[in-house]
Design a protein around this nucleic acid. Structure first.
Lengths: 149, 149
DNA sequence: GTCAAGTATATGAGAGTTCAACTAAATTGG
DNA sequence: CCAATTTAGTTGAACTCTCATATACTTGAC
């Protein structure tokens, strides 16, 4: 027996799809236009920039940047072509690779960050009251706890 | 002067990105696996199924299915190859096209719908309290009102 | 009417994503 | 210690998306 959505649920669902898509499109457009990279690459650079030695194992990087391993592997290949990331073999586990953020990569990230943050504010935080932001956070935590398990 | 995100805002932002991406991936995986179509195609079929005569102008369809015109054009081309949609020239404006949902297309949608709705419940509505659903709706409406203008 | 500007849609190239192999190395269990 | 399994990561093909451009038609101004 399918539990169909009632009218309210449908409206909420469509608002959710529309809102999240608008935000994602805004982020991607801004980053592509001003920094020449998609949002997924930006997240990879951020994750690396926060890691000790700006260096991380591919699998951990995939997890932090919310990327599949395959996607990450392709992405790092492109980032390597741009000279923003290097790959280094892991000595203790020879299957493993580290991705390492280069100085050029860090500079590209630093250059991209202000415009990106502005866009994040414009599309989400400036739109909501502090109360709504707290509620959104709770909602997202609940979703993560369910879907990540 | 960049208005950087404070620690709370960063957490919320990352929770938001993670949660919305988890939901989108769950939707896409389910539909691809069980119905052989991406979520974007599903949204196109839904929009068409709700239109009078199961038929809509390309531009209106793009708006309803939250798709760019180019994306829609490519997508309808694929859907036409599968026999799920037909294109018909518009008599009153010969630049225009109608996309028309075929019986096969409707059947494909009907077959896909129950599994999709289950996934929507699993990934969002079952996770939240009714109160949270209301709050989420308000948040999404606010975002839409700002970003759609 | 005709010409310029605008609108509706299509199309092709380039880039990113997914899925299913595939390689290579580590681990486990007899 | 060796075979079987698991883990880390890459790769190629198929597909979708975006962006810029092209095409065809309509509209408005003169």
């Amino acid at each position: 027996m399918t539990r169909w959505l009632d009218a309210d649920e449908q409206h909420t669902w469509r608002n959710f799809l529309a809102a999240t898509q608008l935000i994602n499109e805004a982020l991607d457009r801004q980053l592509q236009r001003d920094a020449g990279m998609p949002h997924t690459y930006y997240m990879i650079l951020v994750a690396l920039s926060e890691a000790p030695g700006r260096s991380m194992r591919m699998s951990e990087l995939a997890a932090r940047a919310q990327s599949s391993q395959s996607r990450l592997s392709h992405a790092v290949a492109r980032l390597e072509e741009r000279g923003w990331v290097n790959r280094e073999r892991c000595p203790s586990d020879r299957r493993g690779n580290f991705a390492v953020l280069t100085d050029d990569g860090f500079a590209a990230l630093a250059a991209a960050a202000p415009g990106h943050v502005e866009e994040v504010r414009r599309s989400l935080f400036d739109v909501l009251t502090p109360e709504q932001v707290r509620r959104l956070d709770e909602i997202c935590v609940a979703v993560r706890e369910t879907l990540e398990g």
